[in-house]
Simulated scan of single mutants.
Amino acid sequence: MVQKITPDSKLVVAKMLPDGCIDHSSIQPLEQWQRGPRSFDLMRHGYGHELLGILTEDLGLVSVDEDGLLRSKIIIVTSEEEVTGAIMRILGKIAEALIVRSCHADIYANRRWGQIARRGTVPHYTLDQYLAVGTGLEMTRLNNFQKYRPNDPQRDVVWIHCRNKRRELQTLVGGRPAGYSAGLQLKVSMNGFQYIYRTDIRRAKYEVPLVYFDLCNDYYQLANAIYREDRELVVGVDLVRGKDVDPALHDRLCSYWWLVERLVRGHMTTDQLLADELLSDAYKKDLLEDMGSQIITI
């Protein structure tokens, strides 16, 4: 049966049960979901497993010992200023992992992000020859160590040739290679003026594009403020809004913000990212198997 939408109807976010029905206890109005805080139960149900995978596989912030216990390297902080900074740093790395994952899974995403990284005009098929690599990710340290540069202030993501890993994608100037590597610098924040404009962007040389995920929708105010001071800035080229490139990725970061905040404040453990105990046990088992440990099920 199709339910008729009336002027009094409200859009909501809710959890769907295995039988296809809506879990009415999980319902949150869409407007409240968008403005925050988002329902913890919904976020954990929709994003907890993926976030735990990123923290483990991509960031190396979570591991499992041979007793099957998750060990977290996330430092718990208390002061508000330290909390915000810690969330931003983790979310920046998560954005790096999400972009790399997206590029590996979708050639069109790879073309789009690669185009932005090299300042190209169109997402060209030649970018299919290049593989996105996160310079600060754990997977890069393990598989492409020569590209592992976690302290690189400019390039969070670079592209290497599939057949020649030493060859990196080049930035274009006037349609021709400029002689230096393309890449993306990533920033995530709920207050771009305080945590980005006053520190990073005003001193930036725009060697590579800076992609800003503005979780509080302040991108255009930030871009206008920078442009008034530096007319060499090209909005949409030197400074790019992540939400305009991939709205779904932006929305995931919005949900991750609330989960990461709980982890950083110590209000939640990494185990609690998985709501189902059986799912948690299966996840730990998979991790141990990946580590090469022998599992005995009793």
Rank of each mutant, 00 (worst) to 15 (best):
2 V>N: 15
8 D>R: 13
17 L>C: 09
24 H>G: 12
29 P>H: 06
35 R>A: 15
55 L>S: 05
57 E>I: 11
58 D>W: 10
67 D>G: 13
71 R>D: 12
79 S>Y: 06
79 S>P: 10
81 E>H: 07
82 E>D: 12
86 A>F: 08
91 L>E: 01
97 A>L: 05
98 L>C: 02
114 G>M: 00
114 G>E: 00
115 Q>V: 03
116 I>W: 04
129 Q>G: 07
135 T>E: 01
138 E>R: 07
139 M>N: 07
139 M>H: 06
140 T>I: 01
143 N>E: 14
145 F>T: 07
146 Q>Y: 07
154 Q>W: 00
158 V>F: 01
160 I>F: 09
164 N>F: 04
165 K>S: 15
165 K>Y: 14
170 Q>N: 12
172 L>C: 09
174 G>N: 14
182 A>W: 01
185 Q>A: 13
211 V>E: 07
212 Y>K: 00
213 F>G: 08
216 C>A: 14
234 V>Y: 11
243 K>I: 15
245 V>H: 08
246 D>H: 15
248 A>R: 11
248 A>M: 12
249 L>M: 14
260 V>W: 05
265 R>S: 03
273 L>K: 00
274 L>A: 07
277 E>W: 00
278 L>W: 04
281 D>M: 08
282 A>F: 04
284 K>T: 00
287 L>D: 00
289 E>M: 09
293 S>A: 12
